[in-house]
Design a protein around this nucleic acid. Structure first.
Lengths: 366, 366
DNA sequence: CTGTTAGCGCTTTCAG
DNA sequence: CTGAAAGCGCTAACAG
């Protein structure tokens, strides 16, 4: 038995319009009737057909969410928040993860458009240009990261990479590190590039210099971290600290450090980027730059909602800047050579495997 | 300019029926005309309206996929494969992650039904009953794990937890462990229960016994693993090995072991379950029971496809059994007391931090 | 307050 | 081989 408005209407002895109104909570329905209709609906467990509704109303009540590989935990955490928000505001969310797989990007755009999403958040952190163009053409409201919003339907969400990366660099420098390596993400990702540049600038700022050997290109996977660390260890000079473009990379670096019997942070300090939930559970817990996933998801959602719900949001507004910030944990410590000098001055053995730690948070966060 | 069949038709100077046929590759369209139509479609970048199509055809070409919390990497890995398959077979996939959040489960069912999915894979590993019932009522083809398929539209996909868990238990026993703890998932999850029972049986089988203190209930999060290990360490007797109901739990256990200055595997052996990608990157790499995510996703997808594409798939078939299997890495080693005895016999120091290892794979996998 | 009716964009007979 | 026309289930005027 296929249920539809007509069937409900006939059972409740009203017209289909009344059923429709009841479902949509139009207040002009006499309460007694509304209750009667509702009872029938509940009895038969009727759910409206979204397709019919979208077709006639022109609004699908679906938001698209385009992310990169779901296997990087950073993205599921965004998805989770975004979905929660959708739930709260009665929007479906159509998730599309764009892998390197060619055609996948195009596919994502196609899905979103075919399903006539009311708006789409593009949080791929890098290769969004083609998507943005596709949605602009079809006049689909969109929000993306660090783009120039050339028109009212495109909102932007900026990220201040510099702030957190500066904290990381200064934290390391304060601990006496001078040889600091950086493992970047894939060069073609804008976001990865931005992080690397921020690193470079922050290093320059304090008058340090980084040997070209210390700038390794990775691809934001754990495997890349492993390889990068192997390369670093094989070099003529070795860094005493390494900053990674994301947490996955840092995990890979730590893995390889373990392989090389390097103890963290005694022999090597490691800093991640993202602060995924995992960062708290590495051994040792990872010092990393937090970029709040939920804040990103929330801001993106709000931007979309704002664009859709208010007709004349003519001004292509900037939806604020997401700040990044260093979270100190235990993968960073005093630079090995400074530590040695401390040892010489003060011959008594410090207890166990503990490494002396500086509490810099108050300084860094001034 | 809102594009639709009519518009394309008028531009290509054919009827809308012909455009429809062209799009759907109906072979009776004269090639010359088809080309003309196609050119117009490409020029204007037209995408059909899925809603209209679904409405009239009665088939949405959408598969639903219900998973548990996406923040456990096990699930994204399934989602990835399932989506790839959707891509390949021209199905949308609508992902719904069911968190503990009350109402979220109901919401998932509602979404699937309102969007008239052609089938739904329920891979929540535990609390699927309500969902299954909802889909049964509405005659939505479904596939779920370890259910009794009472009717043709419900397929089942079985998982052999025992096989892998037995390997884990025997591996540990062979290394001389007698005090083996088990950190389970939440008691209300069928799948977690199944794992715990399998563990118990495998222990019984070899005549070992496990103290009640060694059976800890967790909830499949890293936090739970941490707490479980803390509890274990605080007990009157300590286990020399712990098997976890999933990899997340194992990561938490390792994290806490580190906190307690327990070295793995010298002081404690740890075994996970799932073999998520992360298991290769813990320090040390995690010995774990593999349950192939891609195999699960693939089997579920095939079951759905089979149900949908063949009208009269009357027989409610079992879609095979997924096997589980121990993957040896480096979080397990010889039991501490046996190791000590070895040390006594053979006084020469073994090199560095290496722990003697047995290569049991060939035996275990006979 | 409630009912009637005209489509939304598409697929699918049924005629030509 | 191509076109005309009848809906799919629903919303939104417009009447009553």
């Amino acid at each position: 038995m296929t249920m539809n408005l007509r069937e409900i209407a006939s059972r409740a002895k009203v017209s289909i319009a009344t059923v429709s109104r009841t479902i949509n909570r139009v207040p002009t329905v006499r309460p007694a009737i509304a209750r009667r209709v509702q009872r029938v609906i509940d009895e038969v467990g009727y759910y409206p057909n979204i397709h019919a509704r979208a077709l006639v109303s022109g609004r699908s009540h679906i938001f698209g969410l385009v992310l990169s590989e779901m296997t990087n935990p950073f993205f599921p955490e965004i998805a989770q928040t975004f979905e929660d928000l959708g739930f709260e505001h009665k929007y479906e969310v159509l998730l599309s993860s764009v892998t390197n797989n060619p055609g996948r990007l195009e596919m994502a755009a196609r899905r979103m458009i075919e399903l006539r999403v009311d708006g789409v958040a593009i949080l791929t952190f890098g290769r969004e240009d083609a998507l943005i163009e596709a949605f602009r053409l079809r006049k689909v409201p969109a929000v993306a990261i660090d783009v120039e919003p050339s028109e009212p339907l495109l909102k932007t969400l900026r990220i201040d990479y510099r702030y957190g990366i500066r904290q990381a660099v200064q934290h390391l420098a304060a601990l006496g590190h001078t040889g600091i390596a950086f493992v970047s993400g894939p060069a073609h990702l804008k976001t990865a590039l931005a992080r690397r540049i921020a690193f470079q600038e922050c290093i320059d700022e304090i008058g340090l210099r980084v040997s070209p050997e210390f700038l390794i290109e990775g691809d934001h996977t754990m495997e890349a971290g492993t390889k990068a660390m192997a390369a670093l260890a094989a070099g003529s000079v070795r860094p005493s600290a390494v900053i990674c473009s994301n947490d996955m990379t840092a995990i890979g670096v730590m893995r390889q450090a373990f392989e090389l019997s390097l103890e963290i942070p005694r022999d090597l300090s490691v800093v991640g980027f993202d602060d995924t939930h995992f960062a708290q559970f590495t051994t040792p817990p990872l010092t990393t730059v937090r970029m709040s996933q939920s804040e990103i998801a929330r801001t993106a959602f709000q931007a979309l909602l704002h664009t859709v719900e208010t007709q004349r949001s003519r001004a292509s507004r900037d939806f604020g800047t997401i700040k990044t910030e260093l979270v100190l944990r235990r993968s960073t410590g005093i630079a090995p050579d400074r530590l040695k000098r401390i040892g010489e001055w003060n011959c008594q053995q410090s207890e166990g495997r503990e490494t002396p730690r500086l509490e810099l948070q108050s300084v860094l966060r001034k």
